[in-house]
Design a protein around this nucleic acid. Structure first.
Lengths: 190, 190, 190, 190
DNA sequence: AATGAATGAGTATTCATTCAT
DNA sequence: CATGAATGAATACTCATTCAT
């Protein structure tokens, strides 16, 4: 629960809040199914709201992406707080990250159009910040390569996303993501 | 047997053959710049041909992708032949693969819509075949993890593509690709 | 007899009356800035009231136009009464008319859609009536062409409005209106 | 016949040229009937062409206005040439101007949005230039007020347009225009 | 009553694809 | 064959109007 969330909870009427949530969930599903370029109409239809309502809440495609990411990022941050000081923080965060991607896939395309939505960059930055300390600790413990930089983290997100994207079924998506993480963590060497 | 048939390019009139080449090159550039979803108009314009000509040669977007990939795949196959029996074949092929992606980026989006173009699947299959023996040898030599399967190869292509896609400059693209390959080959462990 | 009735404004609650005035003023400004076709939303926003409130007071765009005109017409009528019997009544009324247009421009577009709002016709009729005696007197005095008919009066209003419309700055609007009136009063002859 | 016209005649295919003309004529009618803000769809429908065709020929509303004006302006220029040196040139041009307005009304709204289409300004400028010498001559002959400036000319166009705009029937439009010109030429004085 | 959320009809615009020249 | 004009389906977006709170 960050201040943003609280503010929104208080600002929007109950029905509006409900619609907002319906739209976000619909967008998650539609983007997952048809990619980030899917017709916004489809989102509105799936959410069971009119076009205008969609546009009122989210003036454009990117605002929608931001809203979806926002949820995920917040979760990462909470997790980072919960694992503060623990040696397995990095592992836990990484697992959570992959889990989000499995559930909100279709969105990494948005990430790479960051220029059109500075908020997306900001969210990515928050993820990086949440990872900072766990990464440092893992490196100190010698379980994570020392040369890992923050750009790598974003690239890892991209890589996992890329193997997931074309898969429709959530379970197979999870399997693909796990395999990709395995390759990444352990490398290709024999 | 229409002029579209790649393997019969010698049956095309000289100007038609020239147009075909112009279009492929234009497509490579346009897809790189604006993604695989770019307007085909843009391709025709860049190639300096009419729409009709574009459609005659390539009835749809995927045929175009096939033609571009075709070049790359053939190159991989030739390389495989050249490195036949050598211990460094896998390395060489992998490097070539990455190199193609650096130069024809924007196309992996096509790969993942393979269902709409069986030829793309076939091309991917050819890549896999070209890798088969080098992979086996590398595994035998103990320099490549033993559990690597052919799907992994495609996923590796996807992962490299994903970190490259958003980068416009070819040099920075190469750097990103190299870093991604480094992460992949050596893993994240400290 | 609803609260919309202008002549019964004393039956409105004080806050409702205040809202009504705010809306009219906002409409004057918005129509002036963006033309009579401006979004009613803009009017509501500028007035600082909700949409519903706007619609309660003014069920449509024309009702709003009527309310604005109403003020102006009443002023003309009062002026006509004040100048009753005077030789310069016509001059004074014409000057006042132009003055209103300078201040409430953007509205003559409404006038010409009179069919959709009979009240507008009625208001125009009241203007014509207010001018009737002054016109007759001016003609009798030989300072106004004898063939002027009431339709001419409306056309004169339109003509003045037309040269004013595209000008944003009120002072330049006044200058344009004055020049137009000069051309009209004195004609083009050398 | 200016170079522009000739160029177009030569550049466009016969069918395209025909469509272009159909669209212009349709636009003339639609704008006349529903104002310059009319749906472009209506223009396409009336011309009997698809949306895309309309947009190919005229990327936006203003390009369309320009094309319509272009015809009229060319006519004025030809007339100016034909009346070169004659004392009645001003009269003839003014009559022609009014005549065009009677036939292409609905367009002066476009003129006043000149900022969005510099070509419109340029066309207006051409009208002014065509009038320059006839105006000078008329002033010299003492039949036109000496203080008339070029801005007045545009204002006269606006004024005539304004009394015409709301009239649907072409004959009544002509009558209104004539009356307005009479008021303007002879003034309001008795 | 006042508010502002929701609705959906209307309009603009793009682009894949067909087809006349 | 090549060309580029025409088509219309798909999509985006706005705004007048209704209605739940």
């Amino acid at each position: 629960m960050t201040s943003v969330q609280i503010t929104q909870s208080h600002t929007l009427r109950r029905d509006a809040r409900r619609n907002r949530a319906l739209i976000i969930e619909a967008a998650r599903e539609v983007f997952a199914g048809a990619g980030f370029g899917a017709p916004l109409d489809a989102v509105a239809r799936r959410a069971g709201v009119g076009r205008g309502t969609l546009y009122r809440h989210f003036p454009d495609r990117y605002t929608l992406a931001v809203a979806i990411f926002e949820d995920n990022v917040r979760d990462i941050e909470e997790l980072a707080a919960a694992y503060e000081g623990r040696a397995d923080a990095f592992d836990a965060l990484l697992r959570a990250l992959v889990d989000h991607q499995v559930r909100s896939h279709g969105l990494h395309q948005a990430l790479d159009k960051g220029t059109e939505a500075p908020e997306l960059q900001a969210l990515a930055e928050r993820v990086v910040r949440a990872f900072a300390e766990p990464v440092r600790r893992a490196q100190e413990d010698g379980v994570l390569r020392a040369d890992l930089v923050k750009e790598d983290l974003l690239d890892i997100m991209r890589m996992v996303a890329s193997v997931i994207e074309r898969v429709d079924d959530v379970e197979r998506r999870r399997a693909s993501a796990d395999r990709a993480m395995d390759l990444l963590r352990n490398g290709l060497r024999g």
